[in-house]
Design a protein around this nucleic acid. Structure first.
Lengths: 343, 343
DNA sequence: CTGTTAGCGCATTCAG
DNA sequence: CTGAATGCGCTAACAG
């Protein structure tokens, strides 16, 4: 067995509680004893057992992260969104001494039970959910369990009861579409992935809104959902076979963006000469892409950072008003778009 | 407070120890009582406190993951290698009921203290280290602490004392180089990132070996290390200003691969017409790249999966022979190379 | 300023 | 097959 608080106490000729107080640097302990105890701890190689502390404190200083799953495994972790968000969460958690635990499940059901285990098992003090989607069981469970949590994305149900961090996706998509409209595009397509995620719905809405403002009516043929990379080919085919193919596309993920880029080339067309492309989420990928993709910077890292700030605040002050945070997103013009009017 | 084993015991008219036995499905309990107790657990909404269990069992069923850090933050998580490895680890851990905790630190020092906290704090039963590098303090610490762990990559020191999972990077780089030699390239460059990582050293060695077999002597001008994306430009400049610029490149990361691709285009050159490129680590990125990059499939997911298998085996059978695992890597010819002899 | 006492929730002897 | 007793390592009153 490892050396415990008792061993230290004995060796230092003090009581265990004194040692405990030294550990938490209580100000009710004289500097002299602190020094003495710390020396003994050093000598004995003492280290606190966080498990035991967790048990008595009813807190583990750990945040659980519910990963976004998708039908298509590959798109999950590889999607740079997840990586960047976690970076942001990590950074803030580290500043506050919190550890991070992540779900390991791959299906919706597995992830749900991971969450139950973390929460009911008292492994975490709070949770961050990396997605918002319809008919999801995780958020209702967390509400029921009354554990601090923050959703990244816009919750679908019971929105007033949950704290969330999100971009204004409606606005962002509206901006992106308006950006293309300003460049005299009138036939603009929209490509999203899984429409059951709220984020896709919001972006679609923003896209429609921008068109509406220009008096352009909804055209379902210009809206497609790609659930796996293979579909990209078909979708582009369909677009191009239209009597009036789109001259520009708004695409809801960077990976899809580069995918579509490639398909366009396959068709012997060029970006931005033949088709302009604006994608959601500026990431390293959009930067290394050729051409660089004109992308909407959703400040993913910041999203994670703020989410972490949120949970930790909720943990410390449970009665905090659940003020949700909107992270601004703005378009960064790069090389994948052009104006139709080459004045 | 949540409902505990005692509450269940009381409600079911049994002793706490009986409830405990029902939880672990002990075969010393009659089916009748099991049923009865389970019913009560259900009604009361009982869930085990894993913290308490951890304390008494001296095991948390949690694996810690030590993330690879790099000077350049962005390259860390975004690097798909990490994502894929974690997917593999996740999958296996989930199968065995293990949770995953990740380090949150960004600098070497922070990560080290994260590790100490996890291990000494008894938060984890085992560890997986996602890198192997010189003068690293983590591995020695882990050895000292005598906790089960597996390194992904080839350990630098005390290699016989640690279990590791790795590709044969020497062989893989040799194959990659030989592949280019077979295509009649004679001036082959090598680009790696941080040379303090063992993996880079190994690949460099393999590269040299292949050249040697063809009687081509080492040329330092053909070997460059890129520590951040900006350097790519300079390095390519240097390569191209040589009297005999390389006609092919072996590159040690997919992100660097696409980066270099882009720089080559900037110079008005084309891949594979002017320069052939072979990169390490087939990932989604190499697939969506234009052209698709001829890449070495290092089976990253499998690397993680095997590492997890390793730790969990070590946890269950501490005296397991530390048999290390080599995951085969093979080159997947795509579109970024060509033969110099167009017969 | 420090020691004593009493658990946190669970698993595991040892009896019966 | 089940119950009573004990302790995992730590913290938090409550005394002094």
């Amino acid at each position: 067995m490892a050396v415990t608080i008792k061993d230290v106490a004995k060796a230092a000729n003090v009581s265990p509680s004194t040692v405990s107080r030294v550990i938490s640097d209580s100000r009710h302990i004289s500097d002299k004893t602190k020094k003495k105890v710390r020396k003994v701890m050093e000598e004995l190689g003492y280290h606190i057992n966080l498990n035991a502390r967790g048990l008595v404190r009813q807190s583990t200083k750990t945040i659980g992260i519910v990963l976004k799953y998708s039908e298509n495994e590959a798109w999950n972790w590889i999607n740079p969104f997840v990586s960047e968000v976690i970076q942001g969460i990590s950074a803030h958690c580290h500043e506050h001494g919190y550890s991070i635990m992540i779900t390991t499940g791959r299906t919706e059901k597995e992830i749900y039970s991971d969450v139950v285990k973390m929460v009911q098992g008292k492994q975490v003090d709070g949770m961050i959910v990396l997605y918002a989607r319809k008919e999801d069981r995780v958020v209702p469970f967390l509400l029921e369990a009354a554990i601090p949590f923050v959703v990244i994305g816009k919750p679908v149900d019971r929105i007033h009861e949950v704290m969330y961090v999100d971009n204004d996706n409606v606005q962002a998509a509206k901006d992106a579409t308006a950006f293309l409209l300003n460049q005299y595009h009138r036939k603009i397509g929209f490509i999203g992935d899984n429409p059951s995620f709220q984020v896709i719905q919001d972006r679609l809405e923003g896209y429609y809104k921008a068109l509406e403002l220009e008096g352009i009516s909804k055209n379902p043929a210009y809206v497609k959902f790609v659930q796996n990379p293979e579909d990209e080919e078909k979708i582009l085919d369909k677009f191009l076979k239209l009597e009036h193919p789109p001259t520009a596309l708004v695409i809801s993920s960077p990976l899809q963006g580069v995918g579509v880029l490639k398909r366009i080339l396959n068709h012997g067309l060029h970006v931005p000469e033949d088709i302009s492309v604006v994608v959601f989420n500026k990431t390293l990928i959009t930067e290394v892409s050729i051409p660089k993709l004109t992308a909407i910077d959703t400040q993913t890292y910041q999203l994670g950072y703020e989410a972490s700030k949120g949970v930790i605040e909720l943990i410390h002050y449970p009665d905090t008003f659940k003020r949700s945070v909107i992270i601004s997103a703005r378009i960064e013009p790069k090389e994948s778009h052009r104006s139709l009017q080459e004045n």
